[in-house]
């Protein structure tokens, strides 16, 4: 696809894998979502920290400790935890979810190694440790924008790529029985091989997405596609009265009945 950069990775078994790079927009979205989650975590930490501080300070006389010591200890532990959360959030999620964090999952992207393997603890840690540097003055942003493989410093060091996850191929379209029967009739009337795989993809996309279209558009696109394929197949008269949707369903079903080539 022209708009998004792709990379081809050749595995040791000489299999070529194509990946679409994530793109700076998706990475920005992932960052926004992840930082929002992280911010909530840090906020929770801050609430617990201040709650503990107040409680411990009120017990000062019981514990027999100097209030400055308590404060120092608690602050030290709190800062360590905050740093741990900042680094650990990304390391943990990217390791456990094979290169994804909540933000990356939302924006449908994933971190992989340069050789196409899933990301492991080592890569996740390196990426995470360099994150503050990449965030500082948007260094990472400029690296992603200006380099061919769209890598930030952490990606260079860890040897990783950020790619789009495979779009989930939605399941096959359910064709009602009446449309199947019409499909059978159609097979006798037309040469279904005149439909290309691209045409089938268009019909399938319509059948899958029609419920999300506005009502008016549903009718319009259905009519448009039905006319186009009716002309393309040279159908003069239809076997029975039917709606354009039924016609498209029947075509879809009929195409599926071809022996696999």
């Amino acid at each position: 696809m022209g708009l998004f950069k792709t990379v081809t990775i050749r595995t040791p078994e000489s299999i070529e894998l194509d990946f679409v790079l994530a793109g700076v927009g998706s990475r920005a979205v992932a960052l926004v979502v992840d930082y929002a989650c992280l911010g909530l975590g840090l906020l929770g930490l801050a609430v617990i920290y201040s709650f503990l501080l107040v409680q411990l300070l009120s017990m000062e006389s019981v514990l027999g400790l100097d209030s400055r010591t308590i404060q120092l200890w608690l602050t030290a532990i709190g800062s360590l935890l905050a740093f741990g959360l900042y680094v650990g959030y990304f390391v943990l999620f990217e390791t456990l979810w094979f290169g994804q964090t909540p933000g990356k999952r939302y924006s449908k992207i994933r971190v992989i190694r340069d050789d196409g393997q899933p990301e492991r603890l080592l890569q996740a840690t390196l990426r995470s440790l360099l994150r503050p540097i990449d965030d500082f003055l948007f260094i990472g942003f400029f690296c992603i924008l200006l380099t061919q493989p769209e890598k930030r410093l952490g990606d260079w060091l860890a040897g990783t790529l950020v790619v789009q996850t495979d779009p989930k191929t939605p399941g096959p379209v359910q064709v009602p029985e009446r449309s199947q029967a019409i499909g059978k009739d159609l097979l006798g009337l037309i040469d279904i091989t005149q439909l290309s795989p691209d045409d089938l993809a268009t019909i399938r996309a319509f059948l899958q997405r029609r419920t999300t279209l506005s009502r008016q558009a549903q009718v319009q696109v259905s009519d448009h596609l039905a006319r186009r394929y009716k002309d393309q197949l040279g159908l003069v008269t239809l076997p029975t009265e039917m709606t354009t949707d039924t016609f498209l369903e029947a075509l879809y079903w009929a195409y599926q009945q071809q022996p696999q080539r």
Partner: peptide, 14 residues
Amino acid sequence: GPLNPGDVVSAALR
């Protein structure tokens, strides 16, 4: 076809 929010921005930038 329909795009992810991130892809809208990437495509625009491109």
